[in-house]
Design a protein around this nucleic acid. Sequence first.
DNA 1: AATGAATGAGGCTTCATTCAT
DNA 2: TATGAATGAAGCCTCATTCAT
Lengths: 243, 243, 243, 243
Amino acid sequence: MAPVLTPEPASSYITDRSVINMPPVEPSHRRRKQARPQELLDAALALFVEKGFAATRAEEVAARAGVSKGTLYLYYPSKEELLKAVISHNLSDRIAEGAALAAGFEGSAGALLRGILIEWWGNLYDSPAAGVFKLVITEVRNFPDIAHYYASQVIEPAHQLLGDIVRRGIAAGEFRAVDVDNAVHSLILPMVMICLHRHSLGACPLDWHLDGRQFIAQHVHLVLDGLCVHPLAGAAASPAASR
Amino acid sequence: MAPVLTPEPASSYITDRSVINMPPVEPSHRRRKQARPQELLDAALALFVEKGFAATRAEEVAARAGVSKGTLYLYYPSKEELLKAVISHNLSDRIAEGAALAAGFEGSAGALLRGILIEWWGNLYDSPAAGVFKLVITEVRNFPDIAHYYASQVIEPAHQLLGDIVRRGIAAGEFRAVDVDNAVHSLILPMVMICLHRHSLGACPLDWHLDGRQFIAQHVHLVLDGLCVHPLAGAAASPAASR
Amino acid sequence: MAPVLTPEPASSYITDRSVINMPPVEPSHRRRKQARPQELLDAALALFVEKGFAATRAEEVAARAGVSKGTLYLYYPSKEELLKAVISHNLSDRIAEGAALAAGFEGSAGALLRGILIEWWGNLYDSPAAGVFKLVITEVRNFPDIAHYYASQVIEPAHQLLGDIVRRGIAAGEFRAVDVDNAVHSLILPMVMICLHRHSLGACPLDWHLDGRQFIAQHVHLVLDGLCVHPLAGAAASPAASR
Amino acid sequence: MAPVLTPEPASSYITDRSVINMPPVEPSHRRRKQARPQELLDAALALFVEKGFAATRAEEVAARAGVSKGTLYLYYPSKEELLKAVISHNLSDRIAEGAALAAGFEGSAGALLRGILIEWWGNLYDSPAAGVFKLVITEVRNFPDIAHYYASQVIEPAHQLLGDIVRRGIAAGEFRAVDVDNAVHSLILPMVMICLHRHSLGACPLDWHLDGRQFIAQHVHLVLDGLCVHPLAGAAASPAASR
DNA sequence: AATGAATGAGGCTTCATTCAT
DNA sequence: TATGAATGAAGCCTCATTCAT
């Protein structure tokens, strides 16, 4: 299933001359030029996540990136292409990072899961890239390309990675023999949800709040406790009952 | 904090004089008029969820409801008011239902949680109303009214309800002394996520799929196992490892 | 030059049955029905004058007349026909009145002019019919019919009437041998202007104001003084210089 | 009473940075940009006067100015703002001109009045700006801003100017001790009326006509004769009785 | 005769995209 | 490259008019 969003091999902006010129030192306006695509992607990410794709004007993106309307179209042929670039750009790296993290790890399946989820998701949660989840959720139905890209480039590998760890845990007698797919979902879905939340309700001025990083930690503990054969009794209990 | 989206007292469509006259038989165009708001809300919900608010044209909503463009504006003064009505209308009832379900229940906290979550969320998940989560996630930043309404009319009561059950379970020695708020989130967030999923990636034609109802059941078991002092060993284990 | 706006012979509303039925006493709902056209014309006049024809909604007219939107169309086939009816209805009578006033008068040309202008214009100025001048000024360019009607049914007769009086005054050696047409204009145009004013700036809440009736009196005196061979020295001087 | 329609300081079109850069030669599309506001104002004046504000479509204005619909909105944020700009732009200069004319004059009050009224009003009458009177009369009730602007920026100064001349004439024994305000109105109102007329009935193809410039001359003579202590006997008598 | 629900053409305004400079 | 003026398709909304009751 070929991914449609030009996965890792650079991005889809028009001139690829940046790849050609690679002098050790660039004059400053050159560096500006090379930075443009990234600046545009960052601006677009922030705005698309905040207001939605359809409700964001191309000119706003350009303005936030510090360039004029016309310049945007020098780098991306249309608003839609910009959207796809935003999504693929912000996901491709993260996945690889996660896999690397897992590969280099020694220890129990539980410890590995804890490490990956708390470390990796925690970082993701705090980065602007967390917003792409909202973007994907919001826009897949309008742009089917996104669905294929996201399923094959993000969900599949991530699920595979975590599924393997859970399977290893079960095989080692560390975890109970649960349904692996569902267990992985139980671990991941709240994480995604938290990222979504940060860029929707969580960004609104309200009395009510939700601490994402703290929740991540608690949740991982809770689910792992449900998963483990010998739960670390009390591990999830910290400040005890609240409110 | 007064909710801004006309919470329960019916909907916000314009004339309601029809309530006053109660002759045994209504002329047919009267009957149409009474049904219109609901038809429009249903159409709007489906389209807003599928394509997003900004990307849905008012005329599409009207067409799906079987009326003309102008008629829509006979019932809702603007597309934005229609959005608010869609959200408040589809959430107000559900919350009450859940509370009633909880109130009429006898049994352990764990059983109650299982009942509510699997029963109530399962139904919600299968109903079109599940889409409002996507709508809220997507549009809160653009329409701050929604934030206040959702926080006060949905999150607060739901959280209170589940929190009370968890607290009762802890007090009864049934649950470990976990952080209640986080536990509630661990239970709820994946549910919300599943609803979101159904109306985004889940609606796309892909190889990869996710069975919502089955996941709900598994997830509740898993978390409750993590929660319980004496986990029902093996409760979450059903078809064992997959793939 | 046939007038196009159905000058005096009744109005242009659709059913003319009202002319047929003329019993000495009508049941009350009948009287309502017969009164409708007048009520609609009055409402339309007020609104067209206040907001302009294009900016007035048919439904507003109906509402002000105390009927529903549909009823308006029972009496006038379109908004445009309503406009024409408003204009012709409100001008036809006034002109005849003026002519009668002039015919029944005995005395000098100057006295007659004074009488007609102060009396007749004063009354017109205070009646809602004064608004039609604004209406005509505003809408002639859009509805050429109005031009012909107004020129032949209003301007011509009025001008003829006053012109004759002035001519008589000149012949009698009472007035100087001025250009008659211009003299008539000098007398009439400020009157029209005052009527216009009452329904435009004069209706706005401002510090600055202009007393129409008083102005009319002063103006007639002033112009007659300019007209007369032996001006009534000091006639126009009343409270002397102001401000 | 602060005027609301951006009185003299240029017009209300959006960017004005062009004033800063003053290179000897401008690129052609720059030159277009500078000319646009005036072209749009001219087009708008003509159309608003001819058809009324509400009955004129924004696209018509754009087309008459030789640009597309969208371009209009590059210069004026709404049709209503365009209206206000049209009014303020076309009145601000004229008033100043009149004051200058008066200031630089030597001679009797009567001669000065004659000069100003015949010269200045004659020019105004022949210019497109005469149409703004129709516009103001027509639209004040719908746009209250206009009332304040017009009262403070047009009526007040003009009235003051003429009132001073009349007062001077009275003080010098040249004029009779008439009511100054009314005298000024007697002089001005017919002028305004003539401007109105030119753009309403006067623009319609009719048998009946009215020569504005000639009327102005006659009217000024007539009223001045009524005003003067020793009227220039026969001054107003030229071609004698007509018709 | 009267109502008011329904319609859809039409107007205002926005904004993605182009292109001359 | 970069700009920003210009375009025009498209969307929101209004309102004159129709018509079933």
